[in-house]
Write a protein that binds this DNA or RNA. Sequence first.
DNA 1: GTCAATACTGACTGAACAGTCAGTCAACAT
DNA 2: ATGTTGACTGACTGTTCAGTCAGTATTGAC
Lengths: 182, 182
Amino acid sequence: MEEFIARGFAATRLDDIAKRAGVAKGTIYLHFKDKESMFEELVRIVIVPVVTKLTALPPPTGSVRELVEAFAGNFLKEVIGTRRGDLVRLIVAEGPRFPAVADFYYREVVSRGIAAMRALIELGIARGEIREKDLARYPQILVAPAMIAVIWQSLFARHAPLDAQEMLRVHLDLIFGERRTT
Amino acid sequence: MEEFIARGFAATRLDDIAKRAGVAKGTIYLHFKDKESMFEELVRIVIVPVVTKLTALPPPTGSVRELVEAFAGNFLKEVIGTRRGDLVRLIVAEGPRFPAVADFYYREVVSRGIAAMRALIELGIARGEIREKDLARYPQILVAPAMIAVIWQSLFARHAPLDAQEMLRVHLDLIFGERRTT
DNA sequence: GTCAATACTGACTGAACAGTCAGTCAACAT
DNA sequence: ATGTTGACTGACTGTTCAGTCAGTATTGAC
C-alpha cells in the first residue's frame, strides 16, 4: 500500500515491495498472479472492512441528523487523512486504467454508499428534518465535501490544512438547517 | 494530453506521443527538456486559459445566485465531462509525485478559485441571499459537487450517468434557498 | 536421523523505453 | 550553382524492471 500510494501503479517496483515486506521478489509470485492482481487485491482488502464498518449503522435512535453525523464521524476517523484516504485517491487516479478496480469500487462502495445516503435523505425529508426534496435525487451532494476533504488532505494539506470535521459540520448545518450544540 | 490522460504519466510512451503528433521522437527533445517538463507544460497550457475565462466574471448585474450560476455554467461547459475534466483527474492522480504540478495547481487554480468563491459567498451573506454564515469559511463546500461531477464523469459515467447540470442546480437551491425558474 | 514436501530465494532474462546524436533535407542566401 | 543553417529524423544505447526458475532452507512426519 505504501509503495503504490507513493508512486502509483506503473512506477511502483516489485523489488521495493518485496524489500519492504522483508521477502524476496520470487515470494510475491507464490501469493499473487502478477502486479495487477496484487493491486486489485490490495484495493479489495483495504476497502471492504471500511465499507462493512461504515454500513453497520447504529440503531436508529434519535434524529436523522444524528445518524448522518455518526456516519460522517466514522468516515472522518477511518478514511479522511488516513492511508485509506490516500488509497481512495489512488483509485480515482488509476481507475480508468483498471476497469476491474473501478467496477469493483463502483459496485461495492459507490453504489452502496449512494443508496444508503439516499435512504437517509428520504427519511430526513419524511420526518421534516430536510427541506430540499430534490436532494434525494443527488445523494452525491451529501457526500461531496467528504470526498473533497479526502483529496484535499492528500494534495494540499501542506499548502493549506483543512479542518475536515468542522467543514462537515457546516455542510450538515446547510442541509439540516439550524446548528446543533455538540 | 490524450496519451497522458489515457495511461497516466509513467505508462505513457514518448514514441506514442511522437507518432500521434506526426513527428519523430527526437523532435520532442527540441521543444521539451524531458518527459516531466512536457507534462508540466501540458498542465499549464491547458489549465491557464480555463482559469482566465472562469475568473472573467460577468459584470455584477443581478443577484449573487446569478453570478454563481454563470460560474457554474461555464465550469460545466468548459470542464465537466471534457478532456479538461480528465486532466483535472490526472492532476489529482499525479499530484503527489509532481510537487511542481501540485504547487502550480494550488497556486493558480485552487487558491484563486477558493478566494473568488469566498468573495461571492460573503456578498451573498451581506445581501441576505445566503443564510449559512459559516459557509464563507469553507468555500470548498460550494465547489465540492462540481468537483465530484468531474470525477464521476471520468470514472463512473458508464455505470450510472450523472446529470451534472441538474445536480448543481439542486445544490444551489440548497445554498440559496427557494428554487428559481430557469 | 532421514526423507519428502513445501516455502522461499535472488541471479537472470527479455522486453520496453527515455534519451541521444550522426546524419538528412528543405529553405534561403550569395 | 554552391554554401549555410537549423529543423527534423530514427536507429541506437543503456537502463530499468516484471516475471522466471534452478537451487537452497525449513518444517514436520516417521
